[in-house]
Structure formats: C-alpha cells, structure tokens
C-alpha cells in the first residue's frame, strides 16, 4: 500500500529570544533549540498512530508541521489526502454568539464546508446534548457545556487524515466515555489518525502503532503496546534518577 503521509528528515529549530522585546536579531548569539531533529516515518492509510513523549519533546511541533501551521527548517512532508487538525477544540468560539452560531463558525474555522456543517448539524447538537441551549450565547454556558459543544463539532469533522492533540479529556466521566466511543467509531471507519495524548492507556487502546519522541528525535516506532511501555519505563527511570 502507498503511504498517505511521508515524513523525511524533518528538522525544526527555534531561535531563543527570537521576536522578543529588546532582543536584536542577527547577532548570532541567540541560542538555537532543535525542537525536531531528523525525524522520518511513513504512515499508511487507515493507520492510527499514537505519538508519545514528555512535555517539550517536540510532539506539538510535529503536529503543527503536519498541519502546515509551522514550516520545517529542513526535511520534507508529503501528504496525500485532505488533512484536518484539532490542536485545540472550540477554536474561535465567540462568547457573544449563540451555540448554534458557534457550531457554524467553529466548523468553518477547522475546515468544514457550510454544506457539511448543515448536514451534520442535528447530529452535532444531539451529541452535545445541548438542544435546549442552542440559542443561548456561549458566554452563559458552563465550562462543561462549552467543552461538550466544542467536542461535538470536532467529533463530526471527517477529513481523510485527522490530527488530534489531547482532545479526549473533556467533560464528566459519562461524556468522556461517549467521546471515547466516538473515537473508536471514527477509527473503525478507516480514517488515518495522528493522536497525541499523555493518557498512555488511551494510546494503547486506540492506536495500532506509536512513535516515541524524545528531545526532538524519534526514539521508537512500533506497535503501540511496546512503544508506550518503552516510554513509561523511560519516564520511570528518569523519575528515579531525580
């Protein structure tokens, strides 16, 4: 099978102090941080790829490059399909707009067409369980309601390749269960998914394969079970050292 995503020798460096107040550019004395170094992998259509690693390891940078938000310093990314990413749910929600209006706005921002949102509108509302509050401005929503509406839109976003960053942990236990089941449905549909989470159990249950990123480098790539174990062992060892 032909890969749907190819990443070759991806590097991303950030210059510390760049753009900060008073920091002058071009002095050559700014420290350079490598957020990603020489990362290469391929993903086949329908694969569900978990990405694990400690904070600051470069997971988010990788997702941002895949989403085209950030440009790599070196290396290439080839994507063969419509890609959508949810690095944050409820992006662009406006407090003064009603739930209904925000569904349309948020949908458009993450990349759904108006027709697509209209078609799925009832499903989204049913999923959020907020039928009664649709015409209330979201500033009067509780934070739980806010998250439910946001996740409901996100869950009905159906690009061929989906990038998810820590979006499962929303709402109360019952709603989390519902989100988890929804995720399993989405996976069953054969979509290609990138899934970043600190919830190791969720990664093991949802993903077939996982990548371990450490200090910007790809440390491990294989079945989710073993990679997550590798990650947890490493984390335990690091904790023991401290």
């Amino acid at each position: 099978m032909r890969p749907i995503v190819q990443v070759r020798n991806l590097c991303k460096s950030y210059r510390l102090g760049q753009g900060q107040q008073g920091g002058r550019q071009g002095t050559g004395r700014d420290a350079v941080i490598w957020a990603l170094r020489d990362v290469s992998f391929e993903v086949l259509p329908g694969e569900v790829l978990g990405i694990v690693g400690r904070n600051g390891a470069g997971k988010s940078t990788l997702l941002k490059i895949l989403s085209r938000i950030v440009r790599p310093t070196a290396g290439e990314v080839d994507i063969y399909g419509r890609l959508g990413s949810l690095l944050e749910i409820g992006m662009g929600f406006h407090p003064d707009l009603t739930g209904r209006e925000n569904v349309y706005l948020n949908g458009a921002i993450i990349g759904m067409s108006r027709g697509e949102i209209r078609r799925k509108f009832d499903e989204i509302v049913a999923f959020s369980e907020l039928e009664k509050f649709l015409d209330t401005p979201v500033k009067y929503y509780s934070s739980g309601m806010h998250l439910r509406l946001a996740f409901a839109v996100a869950a009905h976003f159906e690009p061929e390749i989906l990038i998810l960053d820590e979006v499962l942990a929303v709402g109360d236990a019952a709603f989390q269960q519902k989100c988890f089941r929804k995720m399993q449905d989405v996976i069953q549909e054969g979509r290609t998914i990138f899934f970043v989470s600190h919830d190791s159990a969720a990664v093991q249950r949802l993903c077939g394969r996982a990548l371990l990123i450490e200090a910007g480098r790809l440390k491990d790539d294989g079945p989710a079970e073993t990679v997550v174990k590798h990650y947890l062992d490493g984390a335990a060892a690091a904790a023991a050292r401290d």
Partner: peptide
C-alpha cells in the same frame, strides 16, 4: 491564538 492553532 487562531493563527497558531489552525491552518488557513
């Protein structure tokens, strides 16, 4: 916030 979280 939007510019750094979603592509368009």
């Amino acid at each position: 916030p939007m510019v750094t979280k979603v592509y368009f």
